[in-house]
């Protein structure tokens, strides 16, 4: 198991947004986390990536507890993510945005940068090449030198995928990647998710778009009111009466 969520609980005031949530993510699979609005998906997501600290429970990544480690440490360990509302780095090109994702994999620092020592130049070439590879992978290489914020929203999403992949992560968490995309773009996203899986990278997908979830996921976790109500392959989930009730109401 690459990711283990154990008894994860988060209180806001006295309200439990997530309540004693347990699930596992198997290496090399695509797992989807779904649920109606306000079910606690984003809260869970933020606790896994380190933006929120759980009230109780723990997050294990590759057998190591990361519950209270800051986001950049989780990123270094191989846990990357994209954002629901795109967060490009302003004043930087698309390529530079993706290079930031890769930068943590190089060792040279301030001193070698200031004097442009061979170590730094070698790292620069390596990072640039890797970033370019990932842009080619997602089909955005032609936009490499444009300012990131000048891209349309759909392409900024794609850039974020390249940025997340640039660090050679072992798991990538996608926070509602299809939100705001048209049908065509969603189809492209589904293809990209499967291609990322082919590279052996595990995916945890938080998503509203049921068709996308059913198409790409190996396993689905359904939560409602912060608790798990169903877990299993898409075919089972689709037929689960409790899930249907949660989504459609009684």
């Amino acid at each position: 198991m690459i990711l283990e969520i154990r008894g994860l609980t988060k209180f806001f005031q006295r309200l439990a947004a997530v309540n004693d949530l347990n699930f596992l993510v198997e290496r090399g699979t695509i797992k989807a986390l779904i649920g109606p609005n306000g079910a606690g998906k984003t809260t869970t997501f933020n606790m896994v990536t380190g933006l929120l600290t759980p009230s109780r429970g723990s997050v294990f990544f590759k057998g190591e507890e990361l519950t209270r480690r800051p986001p950049h440490v989780r990123a270094k360990k191989g846990l990357s993510r994209t954002f629901q509302i795109v967060r490009p780095f302003a004043e930087m090109s698309v390529l530079e945005n993706v290079m930031v994702g890769c930068d943590m994999r190089t060792g040279s620092g301030l001193f070698s940068a200031a004097f442009r020592l061979p170590r730094c130049l070698k790292d620069e070439r390596k990072v640039r090449r890797k970033a370019m590879e990932e842009l080619e992978f997602v089909g955005l290489a032609g936009r490499a030198n444009e300012p990131a914020t000048s891209l349309p929203m759909g392409e900024q999403r794609v850039m974020e995928i390249a940025r997340a992949l640039a660090s050679d992560p072992e798991i990538v968490l996608f926070d509602e990647p299809a939100a705001g995309l048209n049908e065509n773009e969603t189809g492209q996203l589904a293809k990209n998710l499967l291609r990322i899986k082919e590279r052996g990278i595990t995916i945890l997908l938080v998503e509203h778009d049921m068709r996308l979830v059913m198409r790409v996921s190996d396993e689905v976790v359904v939560i409602n009111y912060g608790s798990l109500i169903a877990e299993g392959p898409p075919s089972e989930i689709r037929a689960n009466p409790e899930v249907i009730t949660a989504y459609l109401g009684k």
């Binding site: 990536t49 380190g50 933006l51 800051p70 986001p71 950049h72 990123a75 270094k76 990357s80 993510r81 954002f83 967060r87 490009p88 780095f89 302003a90 004043e91 930087m92 530079e96 290079m99 930031v100 994702g101 930068d103 943590m104 190089t106 040279s108 620092g109 301030l110 940068a113 200031a114 004097f115 442009r116 730094c120 790292d123 620069e124 990072v127 940025r163 997340a164 660090s167």
Partner: peptide, 28 residues
């Protein structure tokens, strides 16, 4: 030189969006 390196990118990234920078492994 610093500005055109990893260090400059990290600084510019945290200026632009510290949440995203941190998630991308930048020790802000």
């Amino acid at each position: 030189n610093i500005a055109r390196s990893k260090v400059g990118r990290a600084m510019l990234a945290l200026r632009g969006d510290d949440v995203a920078a941190s998630a991308m492994g930048v020790d802000i």
